[in-house]
Design a protein around this nucleic acid. Sequence first.
DNA 1: TAGATTGTTAATCGATTAACAATC
DNA 2: TAGATTGTTAATCGATTAACAATC
Lengths: 219, 219
Amino acid sequence: MSKNGSISASVIKRLPRYYRFLGELKKNGVERISSRELSEKMKLTASQIRQDLNCFGGFGQQGYGYHVESLHSEIGKILGVERHFRTILIGAGNLGKAIALHINFETRGCKLMGIFDAKPSLTGEQVGGIAIRHTDELEDFCRENSPVVAVLCIPKANTQAIAEKLVSLGIKAFWNFSHYDLSIDYEDIVVENVHLGDSLLTLTYGANIITSGEEEDQT
Amino acid sequence: MSKNGSISASVIKRLPRYYRFLGELKKNGVERISSRELSEKMKLTASQIRQDLNCFGGFGQQGYGYHVESLHSEIGKILGVERHFRTILIGAGNLGKAIALHINFETRGCKLMGIFDAKPSLTGEQVGGIAIRHTDELEDFCRENSPVVAVLCIPKANTQAIAEKLVSLGIKAFWNFSHYDLSIDYEDIVVENVHLGDSLLTLTYGANIITSGEEEDQT
DNA sequence: TAGATTGTTAATCGATTAACAATC
DNA sequence: TAGATTGTTAATCGATTAACAATC
Protein backbone atom coordinates (compact mmCIF):
# COMPACT_ATOMS: atom_id res chain seq x y z
CA MET A 1 0.00 0.00 0.00
CA SER A 2 2.16 2.91 -1.22
CA LYS A 3 5.59 3.93 0.02
CA ASN A 4 4.62 5.10 3.50
CA GLY A 5 7.30 5.42 6.18
CA SER A 6 6.55 8.62 8.11
CA ILE A 7 5.79 11.57 5.90
CA SER A 8 6.94 15.01 7.05
CA ALA A 9 4.44 17.13 8.94
CA SER A 10 4.68 19.88 6.29
CA VAL A 11 3.38 17.50 3.64
CA ILE A 12 0.62 16.10 5.85
CA LYS A 13 -0.63 19.58 6.71
CA ARG A 14 -1.11 20.24 2.99
CA LEU A 15 -3.06 17.07 2.26
CA PRO A 16 -6.47 18.29 3.48
CA ARG A 17 -6.10 21.35 1.29
CA TYR A 18 -5.32 19.23 -1.77
CA TYR A 19 -8.31 17.10 -0.89
CA ARG A 20 -10.51 20.17 -0.67
CA PHE A 21 -9.39 21.65 -4.00
CA LEU A 22 -9.69 18.33 -5.78
CA GLY A 23 -13.18 17.84 -4.34
CA GLU A 24 -14.12 21.24 -5.71
CA LEU A 25 -12.71 20.43 -9.16
CA LYS A 26 -14.51 17.10 -9.16
CA LYS A 27 -17.76 18.84 -8.21
CA ASN A 28 -17.25 21.22 -11.13
CA GLY A 29 -16.86 18.30 -13.51
CA VAL A 30 -13.13 18.72 -14.17
CA GLU A 31 -11.71 15.38 -15.27
CA ARG A 32 -7.98 15.89 -15.45
CA ILE A 33 -5.54 18.47 -14.14
CA SER A 34 -1.80 19.00 -14.49
CA SER A 35 0.41 19.91 -11.57
CA ARG A 36 0.96 23.29 -13.23
CA GLU A 37 -2.77 24.09 -13.47
CA LEU A 38 -3.37 22.94 -9.91
CA SER A 39 -0.38 24.95 -8.69
CA GLU A 40 -1.90 28.10 -10.16
CA LYS A 41 -5.22 27.51 -8.45
CA MET A 42 -3.64 26.70 -5.11
CA LYS A 43 -0.80 29.22 -5.26
CA LEU A 44 1.88 26.61 -4.85
CA THR A 45 4.66 25.46 -7.18
CA ALA A 46 4.01 22.56 -9.52
CA SER A 47 7.21 21.01 -8.18
CA GLN A 48 5.86 20.98 -4.67
CA ILE A 49 2.64 19.30 -5.72
CA ARG A 50 4.46 16.56 -7.59
CA GLN A 51 6.93 16.15 -4.75
CA ASP A 52 4.13 15.95 -2.17
CA LEU A 53 2.05 13.45 -4.10
CA ASN A 54 5.04 11.25 -4.80
CA CYS A 55 5.48 10.71 -1.08
CA PHE A 56 2.54 8.35 -1.42
CA GLY A 57 2.91 6.98 -4.90
CA GLY A 58 2.77 7.88 -8.57
CA PHE A 59 -0.78 9.04 -9.02
CA GLY A 60 -0.18 10.87 -12.27
CA GLN A 61 0.51 9.92 -15.83
CA GLN A 62 3.23 11.47 -17.97
CA GLY A 63 1.91 13.67 -20.71
CA TYR A 64 -1.57 13.68 -19.21
CA GLY A 65 -1.50 14.91 -15.64
CA TYR A 66 -3.69 13.69 -12.83
CA HIS A 67 -7.16 12.21 -13.01
CA VAL A 68 -9.10 14.46 -10.62
CA GLU A 69 -11.55 11.92 -9.34
CA SER A 70 -9.07 9.17 -8.62
CA LEU A 71 -6.50 11.53 -7.11
CA HIS A 72 -9.24 12.92 -4.86
CA SER A 73 -10.20 9.46 -3.75
CA GLU A 74 -6.57 8.38 -3.25
CA ILE A 75 -5.86 11.35 -0.99
CA GLY A 76 -9.11 10.63 0.82
CA LYS A 77 -7.90 7.09 1.48
CA ILE A 78 -4.54 8.37 2.72
CA LEU A 79 -6.29 10.76 5.11
CA GLY A 80 -8.66 8.07 6.32
CA VAL A 81 -11.85 9.71 5.14
CA GLU A 82 -13.60 6.38 4.74
CA ARG A 83 -12.91 5.38 8.33
CA HIS A 84 -15.54 5.66 11.07
CA PHE A 85 -13.52 6.56 14.12
CA ARG A 86 -15.84 6.52 17.09
CA THR A 87 -15.68 10.02 18.48
CA ILE A 88 -16.79 11.71 21.67
CA LEU A 89 -16.91 15.39 22.54
CA ILE A 90 -16.23 16.67 26.05
CA GLY A 91 -17.51 20.08 27.06
CA ALA A 92 -20.87 21.24 25.71
CA GLY A 93 -20.39 24.96 26.18
CA ASN A 94 -20.81 27.45 23.35
CA LEU A 95 -17.81 26.15 21.49
CA GLY A 96 -18.48 22.47 22.09
CA LYS A 97 -22.04 22.76 20.84
CA ALA A 98 -20.95 24.79 17.83
CA ILE A 99 -18.30 22.22 16.90
CA ALA A 100 -20.80 19.39 17.28
CA LEU A 101 -23.28 21.15 15.03
CA HIS A 102 -20.97 22.88 12.59
CA ILE A 103 -18.40 20.21 11.73
CA ASN A 104 -19.24 17.40 9.37
CA PHE A 105 -17.47 14.59 11.18
CA GLU A 106 -18.73 11.86 8.85
CA THR A 107 -16.97 13.24 5.77
CA ARG A 108 -13.76 13.32 7.76
CA GLY A 109 -13.59 9.75 8.94
CA CYS A 110 -15.17 10.39 12.34
CA LYS A 111 -18.48 9.48 13.87
CA LEU A 112 -19.67 11.62 16.75
CA MET A 113 -21.36 9.28 19.19
CA GLY A 114 -21.45 11.02 22.53
CA ILE A 115 -21.35 14.49 24.08
CA PHE A 116 -20.40 14.98 27.71
CA ASP A 117 -20.48 17.87 30.15
CA ALA A 118 -19.85 18.15 33.87
CA LYS A 119 -22.68 20.64 34.29
CA PRO A 120 -25.78 18.67 35.43
CA SER A 121 -28.15 21.28 34.04
CA LEU A 122 -27.04 20.35 30.51
CA THR A 123 -27.64 16.61 30.90
CA GLY A 124 -30.30 15.42 28.50
CA GLU A 125 -30.18 18.45 26.22
CA GLN A 126 -30.08 17.49 22.54
CA VAL A 127 -27.27 18.74 20.34
CA GLY A 128 -27.59 17.73 16.73
CA GLY A 129 -29.55 14.62 17.63
CA ILE A 130 -27.21 13.57 20.43
CA ALA A 131 -28.24 13.89 24.08
CA ILE A 132 -25.67 15.45 26.37
CA ARG A 133 -24.51 13.00 29.06
CA HIS A 134 -23.03 13.84 32.40
CA THR A 135 -19.27 13.31 32.69
CA ASP A 136 -19.92 10.66 35.33
CA GLU A 137 -21.15 8.39 32.55
CA LEU A 138 -17.90 8.71 30.63
CA GLU A 139 -16.30 5.53 31.92
CA ASP A 140 -19.31 3.33 31.31
CA PHE A 141 -19.83 4.84 27.89
CA CYS A 142 -16.22 4.23 26.91
CA ARG A 143 -16.28 0.63 28.10
CA GLU A 144 -19.41 0.00 26.06
CA ASN A 145 -18.53 1.96 22.94
CA SER A 146 -14.72 2.19 22.99
CA PRO A 147 -14.36 5.56 21.25
CA VAL A 148 -11.00 6.36 19.67
CA VAL A 149 -11.16 10.12 19.09
CA ALA A 150 -12.00 12.77 21.71
CA VAL A 151 -12.82 16.40 21.00
CA LEU A 152 -11.89 18.55 24.00
CA CYS A 153 -13.85 21.78 24.43
CA ILE A 154 -13.13 22.17 28.12
CA PRO A 155 -11.36 24.75 30.25
CA LYS A 156 -7.59 24.67 30.41
CA ALA A 157 -7.52 23.68 34.07
CA ASN A 158 -9.35 20.37 33.54
CA THR A 159 -7.65 19.31 30.33
CA GLN A 160 -4.69 17.34 31.62
CA ALA A 161 -6.73 15.33 34.12
CA ILE A 162 -9.49 14.53 31.64
CA ALA A 163 -7.03 13.67 28.90
CA GLU A 164 -5.22 11.29 31.24
CA LYS A 165 -8.47 9.60 32.11
CA LEU A 166 -9.48 9.34 28.47
CA VAL A 167 -6.14 7.83 27.53
CA SER A 168 -6.67 5.20 30.19
CA LEU A 169 -10.10 4.57 28.67
CA GLY A 170 -8.57 3.91 25.25
CA ILE A 171 -8.68 7.28 23.47
CA LYS A 172 -5.93 7.47 20.86
CA ALA A 173 -6.48 10.88 19.27
CA PHE A 174 -7.38 14.27 20.68
CA TRP A 175 -8.81 17.26 18.86
CA ASN A 176 -7.98 19.77 21.53
CA PHE A 177 -9.69 23.18 21.64
CA SER A 178 -8.71 23.84 25.23
CA HIS A 179 -6.10 26.40 26.02
CA TYR A 180 -3.64 23.73 27.14
CA ASP A 181 -0.84 22.22 25.02
CA LEU A 182 -1.63 18.53 25.27
CA SER A 183 1.13 17.25 23.00
CA ILE A 184 3.59 17.96 25.76
CA ASP A 185 2.41 15.11 27.96
CA TYR A 186 1.49 12.30 25.59
CA GLU A 187 3.92 11.63 22.83
CA ASP A 188 2.46 8.32 21.74
CA ILE A 189 -1.02 9.74 21.28
CA VAL A 190 -2.12 11.83 18.32
CA VAL A 191 -2.99 15.39 19.24
CA GLU A 192 -4.24 18.22 17.08
CA ASN A 193 -4.22 21.43 19.10
CA VAL A 194 -6.48 24.20 17.86
CA HIS A 195 -5.50 27.40 19.61
CA LEU A 196 -8.08 29.89 18.44
CA GLY A 197 -6.66 32.54 20.74
CA ASP A 198 -3.20 32.12 19.25
CA SER A 199 -4.71 32.35 15.79
CA LEU A 200 -6.39 35.65 16.61
CA LEU A 201 -3.16 36.97 18.09
CA THR A 202 -1.33 36.13 14.88
CA LEU A 203 -3.94 38.15 13.02
CA THR A 204 -3.56 41.01 15.48
CA TYR A 205 0.19 40.99 14.82
CA GLY A 206 -0.47 41.29 11.10
CA ALA A 207 -3.04 44.05 11.59
CA ASN A 208 -0.59 45.82 13.89
CA ILE A 209 2.16 45.73 11.26
CA ILE A 210 -0.13 46.81 8.43
CA THR A 211 -1.67 49.73 10.31
CA SER A 212 1.41 50.86 12.23
CA GLY A 213 2.38 54.39 11.33
CA GLU A 214 -0.85 55.02 9.43
CA GLU A 215 -3.43 55.72 12.05
CA GLU A 216 -3.42 55.27 15.78
CA ASP A 217 -6.34 53.52 17.40
CA GLN A 218 -8.67 55.94 19.14
CA THR A 219 -10.14 53.16 21.34
CA MET B 1 11.39 50.49 17.90
CA SER B 2 13.40 47.23 17.65
CA LYS B 3 14.96 45.75 14.55
CA ASN B 4 11.81 44.97 12.61
CA GLY B 5 12.03 44.37 8.87
CA SER B 6 9.62 41.50 8.12
CA ILE B 7 10.03 38.56 10.45
CA SER B 8 9.56 35.07 9.05
CA ALA B 9 6.14 33.49 9.39
CA SER B 10 7.59 30.59 11.38
CA VAL B 11 8.77 32.97 14.08
CA ILE B 12 5.51 34.93 14.18
CA LYS B 13 3.46 31.76 14.55
CA ARG B 14 5.44 30.95 17.67
CA LEU B 15 5.00 34.34 19.34
CA PRO B 16 1.48 33.76 20.73
CA ARG B 17 2.72 30.55 22.32
CA TYR B 18 5.64 32.33 23.99
CA TYR B 19 3.20 34.95 25.16
CA ARG B 20 0.94 32.29 26.62
CA PHE B 21 3.70 30.45 28.48
CA LEU B 22 5.19 33.66 29.82
CA GLY B 23 1.76 34.80 31.00
CA GLU B 24 1.42 31.53 32.85
CA LEU B 25 4.84 31.87 34.47
CA LYS B 26 4.06 35.44 35.45
CA LYS B 27 0.77 34.31 36.99
CA ASN B 28 2.68 31.72 38.99
CA GLY B 29 4.99 34.37 40.33
CA VAL B 30 8.10 33.31 38.41
CA GLU B 31 10.42 36.30 38.11
CA ARG B 32 13.20 35.19 35.82
CA ILE B 33 13.71 32.33 33.39
CA SER B 34 16.61 31.18 31.24
CA SER B 35 16.19 30.11 27.64
CA ARG B 36 17.13 26.59 28.72
CA GLU B 37 14.42 26.39 31.40
CA LEU B 38 11.81 27.84 29.06
CA SER B 39 12.89 25.47 26.31
CA GLU B 40 12.23 22.50 28.58
CA LYS B 41 8.76 23.73 29.44
CA MET B 42 7.85 24.49 25.84
CA LYS B 43 9.63 21.53 24.23
CA LEU B 44 11.77 23.71 22.00
CA THR B 45 15.52 24.24 21.87
CA ALA B 46 17.05 27.07 23.89
CA SER B 47 18.78 28.17 20.69
CA GLN B 48 15.49 28.63 18.93
CA ILE B 49 14.07 30.72 21.74
CA ARG B 50 17.10 33.02 21.79
CA GLN B 51 17.11 33.21 17.99
CA ASP B 52 13.39 34.00 17.89
CA LEU B 53 13.53 36.69 20.55
CA ASN B 54 16.55 38.33 18.98
CA CYS B 55 14.51 39.03 15.86
CA PHE B 56 12.95 41.80 17.91
CA GLY B 57 15.75 42.87 20.19
CA GLY B 58 17.89 41.78 23.10
CA PHE B 59 15.37 41.20 25.85
CA GLY B 60 17.67 39.08 28.00
CA GLN B 61 20.67 39.68 30.15
CA GLN B 62 23.82 37.57 30.08
CA GLY B 63 24.30 35.46 33.14
CA TYR B 64 20.74 36.12 34.30
CA GLY B 65 18.27 35.08 31.65
CA TYR B 66 14.99 36.84 30.91
CA HIS B 67 12.79 38.84 33.24
CA VAL B 68 9.45 37.08 32.84
CA GLU B 69 7.20 40.06 33.34
CA SER B 70 9.00 42.42 31.00
CA LEU B 71 9.51 39.76 28.31
CA HIS B 72 5.80 38.98 28.50
CA SER B 73 4.92 42.60 28.09
CA GLU B 74 7.44 43.12 25.26
CA ILE B 75 5.99 40.22 23.28
CA GLY B 76 2.53 41.57 24.00
CA LYS B 77 3.55 44.90 22.48
CA ILE B 78 5.01 43.17 19.43
CA LEU B 79 1.77 41.25 18.92
CA GLY B 80 -0.35 44.35 19.40
CA VAL B 81 -2.19 43.18 22.48
CA GLU B 82 -2.67 46.71 23.75
CA ARG B 83 -4.36 47.81 20.53
CA HIS B 84 -8.13 48.15 20.22
CA PHE B 85 -8.80 47.11 16.66
CA ARG B 86 -12.44 47.70 15.96
CA THR B 87 -13.82 44.31 15.02
CA ILE B 88 -17.02 43.01 13.45
CA LEU B 89 -18.27 39.47 13.10
CA ILE B 90 -20.27 38.30 10.11
CA GLY B 91 -22.45 35.22 10.39
CA ALA B 92 -24.21 34.54 13.69
CA GLY B 93 -24.78 30.82 13.22
CA ASN B 94 -23.61 28.27 15.78
CA LEU B 95 -19.97 28.94 15.12
CA GLY B 96 -20.28 32.73 14.90
CA LYS B 97 -22.10 32.93 18.20
CA ALA B 98 -19.65 30.56 19.87
CA ILE B 99 -16.69 32.62 18.66
CA ALA B 100 -18.32 35.83 19.85
CA LEU B 101 -18.95 34.35 23.28
CA HIS B 102 -15.92 32.13 23.70
CA ILE B 103 -13.05 34.30 22.48
CA ASN B 104 -11.65 37.06 24.65
CA PHE B 105 -11.08 39.66 21.95
CA GLU B 106 -10.03 42.39 24.37
CA THR B 107 -6.94 40.57 25.61
CA ARG B 108 -5.89 40.09 21.99
CA GLY B 109 -5.98 43.65 20.77
CA CYS B 110 -9.47 43.49 19.31
CA LYS B 111 -12.75 45.02 20.28
CA LEU B 112 -15.88 43.26 19.05
CA MET B 113 -18.35 46.02 18.17
CA GLY B 114 -20.89 44.49 15.83
CA ILE B 115 -22.38 41.17 14.80
CA PHE B 116 -24.17 40.74 11.50
CA ASP B 117 -26.30 38.06 9.90
CA ALA B 118 -28.34 37.92 6.70
CA LYS B 119 -31.11 35.95 8.40
CA PRO B 120 -33.80 38.46 9.47
CA SER B 121 -35.04 36.17 12.23
CA LEU B 122 -31.76 36.70 14.09
CA THR B 123 -31.87 40.51 13.96
CA GLY B 124 -32.04 41.99 17.44
CA GLU B 125 -30.97 38.84 19.26
CA GLN B 126 -28.31 39.54 21.90
CA VAL B 127 -25.00 37.70 21.77
CA GLY B 128 -22.69 38.53 24.64
CA GLY B 129 -24.22 41.96 25.05
CA ILE B 130 -24.16 42.80 21.35
CA ALA B 131 -27.36 42.87 19.31
CA ILE B 132 -27.24 41.05 15.99
CA ARG B 133 -27.76 43.45 13.07
CA HIS B 134 -29.01 42.60 9.62
CA THR B 135 -26.33 42.53 6.92
CA ASP B 136 -28.14 45.42 5.21
CA GLU B 137 -26.84 47.68 7.96
CA LEU B 138 -23.24 46.71 7.29
CA GLU B 139 -22.39 49.67 5.08
CA ASP B 140 -23.85 52.28 7.38
CA PHE B 141 -22.23 50.67 10.38
CA CYS B 142 -18.82 50.62 8.72
CA ARG B 143 -19.07 54.27 7.64
CA GLU B 144 -19.92 55.27 11.20
CA ASN B 145 -17.54 52.97 13.09
CA SER B 146 -14.81 52.14 10.54
CA PRO B 147 -13.95 48.66 11.78
CA VAL B 148 -10.57 47.24 10.81
CA VAL B 149 -10.93 43.53 11.58
CA ALA B 150 -13.69 41.22 10.32
CA VAL B 151 -14.40 37.72 11.61
CA LEU B 152 -16.04 35.64 8.89
CA CYS B 153 -18.28 32.79 10.04
CA ILE B 154 -20.23 32.52 6.83
CA PRO B 155 -20.76 29.82 4.21
CA LYS B 156 -18.06 29.32 1.61
CA ALA B 157 -20.26 30.50 -1.25
CA ASN B 158 -20.72 34.01 0.15
CA THR B 159 -17.20 34.59 1.38
CA GLN B 160 -15.55 36.13 -1.65
CA ALA B 161 -18.38 38.60 -2.30
CA ILE B 162 -18.64 39.69 1.33
CA ALA B 163 -14.89 39.97 1.71
CA GLU B 164 -14.72 42.18 -1.38
CA LYS B 165 -17.42 44.42 0.01
CA LEU B 166 -15.72 44.59 3.39
CA VAL B 167 -12.39 45.50 1.80
CA SER B 168 -14.13 48.35 0.01
CA LEU B 169 -15.54 49.42 3.37
CA GLY B 170 -12.06 49.61 4.88
CA ILE B 171 -11.50 46.20 6.50
CA LYS B 172 -7.80 45.40 6.65
CA ALA B 173 -7.71 42.04 8.41
CA PHE B 174 -9.84 38.91 8.16
CA TRP B 175 -10.17 36.09 10.64
CA ASN B 176 -11.71 33.65 8.26
CA PHE B 177 -13.60 30.57 9.48
CA SER B 178 -15.35 30.01 6.18
CA HIS B 179 -14.37 27.10 4.02
CA TYR B 180 -12.86 29.39 1.41
CA ASP B 181 -9.16 30.29 1.09
CA LEU B 182 -9.31 34.06 1.20
CA SER B 183 -5.58 34.79 0.99
CA ILE B 184 -5.74 33.84 -2.64
CA ASP B 185 -7.59 36.97 -3.70
CA TYR B 186 -6.25 39.73 -1.49
CA GLU B 187 -2.54 39.83 -1.06
CA ASP B 188 -2.35 43.26 0.53
CA ILE B 189 -4.84 42.39 3.23
CA VAL B 190 -4.01 40.34 6.32
CA VAL B 191 -5.84 37.03 6.42
CA GLU B 192 -5.79 34.30 9.01
CA ASN B 193 -7.63 31.28 7.69
CA VAL B 194 -8.93 28.82 10.26
CA HIS B 195 -9.88 25.61 8.51
CA LEU B 196 -11.39 23.51 11.24
CA GLY B 197 -12.28 20.82 8.74
CA ASP B 198 -8.68 20.57 7.56
CA SER B 199 -7.56 20.40 11.16
CA LEU B 200 -9.87 17.46 11.87
CA LEU B 201 -8.66 15.72 8.70
CA THR B 202 -5.08 16.06 9.88
CA LEU B 203 -6.10 14.38 13.10
CA THR B 204 -7.90 11.65 11.18
CA TYR B 205 -4.70 11.02 9.21
CA GLY B 206 -2.80 10.61 12.47
CA ALA B 207 -5.46 8.33 13.94
CA ASN B 208 -5.45 6.33 10.73
CA ILE B 209 -1.68 5.81 10.90
CA ILE B 210 -1.67 4.95 14.60
CA THR B 211 -4.53 2.45 14.36
CA SER B 212 -3.69 0.93 10.98
CA GLY B 213 -2.95 -2.75 11.25
CA GLU B 214 -4.22 -2.99 14.83
CA GLU B 215 -7.95 -3.08 14.58
CA GLU B 216 -10.33 -2.39 11.77
CA ASP B 217 -13.27 -0.10 12.39
CA GLN B 218 -16.50 -2.01 12.84
CA THR B 219 -18.62 1.09 12.04
C1' DT C 1 6.12 10.41 -33.89
C1' DA C 2 5.95 14.91 -31.34
C1' DG C 3 4.20 17.22 -27.32
C1' DA C 4 3.13 17.23 -22.76
C1' DT C 5 3.83 16.32 -18.25
C1' DT C 6 5.15 13.28 -14.92
C1' DG C 7 8.56 11.15 -11.31
C1' DT C 8 12.88 11.96 -9.47
C1' DT C 9 17.43 13.70 -8.81
C1' DA C 10 20.22 17.77 -7.97
C1' DA C 11 20.56 22.70 -6.49
C1' DT C 12 18.90 26.26 -3.63
C1' DC C 13 16.97 28.28 -0.02
C1' DG C 14 15.47 28.94 4.67
C1' DA C 15 14.99 27.42 9.26
C1' DT C 16 16.89 25.07 13.13
C1' DT C 17 20.66 23.78 15.95
C1' DA C 18 25.30 24.09 17.77
C1' DA C 19 29.09 26.67 19.34
C1' DC C 20 31.31 30.30 21.51
C1' DA C 21 32.87 34.90 22.44
C1' DA C 22 30.76 38.82 24.88
C1' DT C 23 29.15 40.32 29.20
C1' DC C 24 26.28 40.63 33.17
C1' DT D 1 36.64 37.34 40.02
C1' DA D 2 34.09 33.01 38.52
C1' DG D 3 29.77 31.23 36.83
C1' DA D 4 25.97 31.66 34.10
C1' DT D 5 23.66 32.70 30.19
C1' DT D 6 22.94 35.68 26.62
C1' DG D 7 23.42 37.45 21.56
C1' DT D 8 25.25 36.09 17.40
C1' DT D 9 27.89 33.71 14.01
C1' DA D 10 28.74 29.30 11.78
C1' DA D 11 27.23 24.46 10.72
C1' DT D 12 23.57 21.41 9.88
C1' DC D 13 19.45 19.96 8.57
C1' DG D 14 15.16 19.82 6.06
C1' DA D 15 12.03 21.69 2.84
C1' DT D 16 11.26 23.91 -1.46
C1' DT D 17 12.39 24.74 -6.13
C1' DA D 18 14.55 23.79 -10.52
C1' DA D 19 15.91 20.74 -14.04
C1' DC D 20 15.54 16.94 -16.89
C1' DA D 21 15.34 12.20 -18.33
C1' DA D 22 11.54 8.84 -18.55
C1' DT D 23 7.28 7.89 -20.63
C1' DC D 24 2.53 8.27 -21.75
